[in-house]
């Protein structure tokens, strides 16, 4: 999972794109150590548990749960992983470019 996301972030570093991680590990030190080890460079918020404030507010019960948002903040895809995630992001970036033109 992480290697794939790393590739995505790397590939799109000059595009209007961001990956935000909401981490639900219990142990903060374990999370920080693993994140460092695996090279999590993107913005990530440690919530302390799968029942943390944000997962609860969003009603997340299974993990990982993924939302892909367009530039307006509207949810466009949910639970796309791997290639599907790439395709979703590419489609939204293309849409954004057409709109700007």
């Amino acid at each position: 999972m992480i290697p794939h996301e790393k590739t995505l972030v790397e590939r799109l570093k000059n595009e209007p794109f961001a990956l935000i991680g909401i981490n639900t590990d219990k142990d903060k030190d374990f999370y920080h150590q693993k994140a460092k080890e695996l090279g999590v460079t993107w913005r990530s918020s440690w919530q302390g548990s799968t029942g943390g404030v944000l997962p609860r507010a969003w009603g997340i019960t299974s993990f990982p749960t993924i939302f892909v948002l367009d530039a307006k903040g509207v949810i466009r895809y949910t639970n796309v992983r791997g290639e599907k995630m790439d395709a979703a992001v590419n489609a939204l970036l293309a849409e954004l470019k057409t709109e700007k033109r």
Binding site: M1, E5, L8, E15, P16, F17, A18, L19, I20, G21, I22, N23, T24, D25, F30, Y31, K34, T50, L54, P55, W58, I60, F63, P64, T65, I66, F67, V68, L69, D70, A71, K72, G73, M85, V89, L92, L93, L96
Partner: peptide, 12 residues
């Protein structure tokens, strides 16, 4: 806003 965002609820 203005960026495409992947929001990922996850954990190790």
């Amino acid at each position: 806003r203005g960026k495409v965002v992947v929001l990922d609820f996850w954990g190790f």
